[in-house]
Nucleic acid binder design. Sequence first.
DNA 1: CTGAAAGCGCTAACAA
DNA 2: TTGTTAGCGCTTTCAG
Lengths: 347, 347
Amino acid sequence: MGSSPGTRRPTIAAVAQAAGVSVSAVSHVFNGRTNISPETAQRIRDAADALNWRPNVASRRVSRSLGGPAGGAVGNSIGLVVTQSPETFRRDPFFIRLIAGLTGPLGELGWSLSLTVVEPQDEEQVYRQWWTEQRVDGFLLVDLRTKDPRIPLLRSLSATAVALGPTPAASAVPGVTLDDGAGLEEVLAHLAGLGHRRIARVTSSPGLAHSRRRDRALTAAARQRDLTVRSLAWNEDAADPVAGLLAARGDVSALVLDSEALATRVIAHAPELGVRVPADLSVLSWEDSWVSELVRPRLTALSAPVEDSARTAVDLLRRMVHGEKPSSVVVPGRRLVVRESTGPAPA
Amino acid sequence: MGSSPGTRRPTIAAVAQAAGVSVSAVSHVFNGRTNISPETAQRIRDAADALNWRPNVASRRVSRSLGGPAGGAVGNSIGLVVTQSPETFRRDPFFIRLIAGLTGPLGELGWSLSLTVVEPQDEEQVYRQWWTEQRVDGFLLVDLRTKDPRIPLLRSLSATAVALGPTPAASAVPGVTLDDGAGLEEVLAHLAGLGHRRIARVTSSPGLAHSRRRDRALTAAARQRDLTVRSLAWNEDAADPVAGLLAARGDVSALVLDSEALATRVIAHAPELGVRVPADLSVLSWEDSWVSELVRPRLTALSAPVEDSARTAVDLLRRMVHGEKPSSVVVPGRRLVVRESTGPAPA
DNA sequence: CTGAAAGCGCTAACAA
DNA sequence: TTGTTAGCGCTTTCAG
């Protein structure tokens, strides 16, 4: 064990001694200084390998807090704090896609991802703690809310952060936003082409910023096509949320749902309630993943380049940690994947 | 930004000054020493809050490497290195359940989870790096393989680790194992009761230790009930893996699949290939999650208490980090959830 | 109950 | 090209 007595882990001094050089020579090699002869450098590296030694990240961070090249930037870890019930976190494929997309680019940088899932009441506490304890070099914000309290919080902490989604222009948090416009047009063209005239957007979290944005964008775009768009709320607490939704839909012939978790539940359960998809009702999801391919009928979905967003976010974070002040980025590539859950509007 | 010039973060000295005490007084308060008067302690805490200060984890780790109470143990972070293709990682609900189950107990400890997904060839490198750099205090090993190379690797690094699954008794890595016996009996009783006589177990990763274990256990238990069990391999590279599997199944009337990812694909795709579930073929998954409830027919599955395992693993890790040498733990609670994908054997 | 001081492993001036 | 050394923020011993 690392903590068993007598088993002290090797230090830079041990490596220096093994290689027959000074401590600073070792340090230089591991910090990309070019002032060490190749042979010596190799000898140092060999000694380090033999001892299984690598610079201790903690010590490194402490000493670099002095005046390193990047003003003390180290770049060890970025924090992802997901404020959702564990249930939502588990069920929404978006999160696992995001995580998977993040670890690649982070690994290339030698950074790691510190992840946690918290209930809303613990959110502020975790951001505060992780930042003030200097556990992380920055945060990736997801599920931006309207007037998101994390923006002023992070500002007051002088914390580094990047958001997935648009942020207020004045904030110090650049956002990685998806270009929704094209996808939205595709959705409407698709539905209108199938003869739908009345559609509804369904969300389970009206407090999320993207929800309002989508409402507005969809409504505006629909007007130009002479479609009407209603807004429907998903009530998770109902005995049967799908039944509730179907009952509330009125004369709507197509449903656009904010998440796959919602859309797939409608797909699976609607037939059991006597509503055939897509014969009676078309269903479309604003997010896409393997789950949409799994249900029957397969779900027509707006797919987002989550991996691209993740990579872009990591890059922004990297630059911020190194002292730059990058501005927001728009990632293109949303597109409609037509599968089986949308069909001609019923007569 | 944390790195902008002039914005140095407050240190313990600043807090001490603000509270009008010495540096060590502040340290004592934040380390649970009892030799500070309640009033003074409160004053110190207030000063820290006012300055948004918390002990820097990096400095803490460096100084504690000296001779702290737990022999230098700090307990900041545990590493979860998932050796899977991003695709498998995304599709298998087990991982997100595990992650969700881990963050709760870790949060209670004030620890965080460092997560990454790596390809097999990078695995060793990541374990080496994270441990020698002292990024993590320990690892949680998942997807144990037969003769898993990580066990000797971690041993050679003197790294702390706990595994999900049984580990060799001689290794220094305690395991959190599921009590499969009861669930297995349930599976066989259920299938036998439905008249099945020939069943097959399907795996996509025969190299995983649990795969062999399940094969053996199922075969042994089946013999006593006069059932025959075959072993079938899932070939992901085939043009249509489900079709390949169905073609290879011979006279088997029930399939037990190692993961939900596999089982749900069979469920969804088999009808399109003319095989009705469960009328022609019963399908049973060795793992369970919301996905099993989503597909139609709903999937009969062996559910595992992943959250319990996660909590147990965190507890073992905590104890190891504090110098104990706990032994393996068996977590009970696997049980069969009968849904719709299993039915009477065809005549 | 409090404070002064040594030292953790490492980095980066600066000197040689 | 290499070595010496001060110092990062914190903990903890030990003396007041």
